[in-house]
């Protein structure tokens, strides 16, 4: 090989080395666009339904019992709006980081196809994480607008519920991503994870009612749930809920650490799958 030839070879990989993850994101966006109809309908329909069911329906029962302004000093709708935004974000993440990951490795192994190009295993992971972050941010922003239009997010800092929800989604999603990437056969593991992990972490996380309403033995589940940390953080920015500063810092740290740890783990697992 001449040195000129070597230089040419190096040059061919400069752009993929720098922007490879973004190219993977582009791919996911292209596929997402194919299902634009159902995606947009869900993004707009779901918050309206939440408003109708929880804000109005359940709100009547709660407010009748607790009196208006009885929940954490605000109306029921205001209390749950940040939590609902975070819940929707988590739902998207748990959809994107489960079956599609197995599909890309096994049923329709496009990740293997990507890796045959200059794209590295890390970039395959980064590209999907980036895509999910974008999708969650865009969707929760729509939620936020609709909730805000109905008075669900009164504080000026309310728009911060969107990045909070994105962090919550990643804290929930990247560990799931790492787990999904380890699976070689589908034996219903996702159904189990959904039922015994995702569901309790969602239900016992102080979204529809304060965590303290639960019996003491169920409350620790909430402490471990990214959704509880995300919902509480959302309440601080959504209506200025009064929480100790240290607790708010713990919420934020919990989400960031979990998201980064899951992400790192996913890269490791994916390297094992694609570079073995």
């Amino acid at each position: 090989m001449s040195s000129e030839d070597r230089l040419e070879l190096r040059r061919a990989a400069v752009r993929p080395r720098a922007f490879g993850a973004w190219y993977v994101t582009e791919h996911h966006v292209r596929i997402w666009r194919r299902y634009l109809g159902v995606n947009v309908a869900t993004a707009i329909g779901t918050p309206f339904m939440f408003l109708l069911a929880f804000g109005i329906g359940l709100g009547l029962l709660v407010n009748a019992n607790a009196g208006p302004g009885g929940v954490d000093g605000v109306s029921y709708l205001v209390f749950i709006a940040p939590a609902l935004i975070a819940t929707s974000a988590v739902t998207i993440a748990s959809d994107e980081f489960s079956y599609p990951v197995m599909q890309g490795l096994k049923w329709n192994p496009i990740y293997i196809g990507m890796h045959a190009t200059p794209i590295t295993a890390r970039q395959v992971v980064d590209g999907l994480v980036l895509f999910v972050a974008l999708r969650v941010t865009a969707t929760t922003f729509v939620y936020f607008l609709i909730m805000a239009a109905f008075g669900g997010v009164p504080a000026a800092s309310g728009v911060l519920t969107v990045p909070v929800a994105t962090f919550t989604a990643l804290a929930f999603g990247t560990p799931l991503f790492a787990y999904a990437a380890t699976l070689r056969e589908d034996r219903g593991q996702f159904a189990v994870v959904q039922r015994v992990l995702v569901l309790p972490l969602t239900l016992f996380s102080g979204t529809l009612f304060p965590l303290e309403q639960l019996p003491a033995f169920l409350q620790p589940i909430g402490w471990l749930s990214p959704l509880w940390h995300g919902a509480e953080l959302g309440r601080v920015v959504g209506y200025g809920a009064e929480r100790p500063l240290w607790l708010t810092a713990v919420h934020l740290a919990f989400l960031v650490v979990l998201a980064l740890a899951g992400w790192r783990l996913a890269v490791r697992v994916m390297r094992g799958r694609l570079d073995a």
């Binding site: 190096r10 061919a12 990989a13 080395r17 045959a116 190009t117 200059p118």
Partner: peptide, 11 residues
């Protein structure tokens, strides 16, 4: 040099 090589391969 995985990426450099794969940039010049067809698989």
């Amino acid at each position: 040099f995985g990426p450099e090589i794969r940039a010049r391969l067809g698989v």
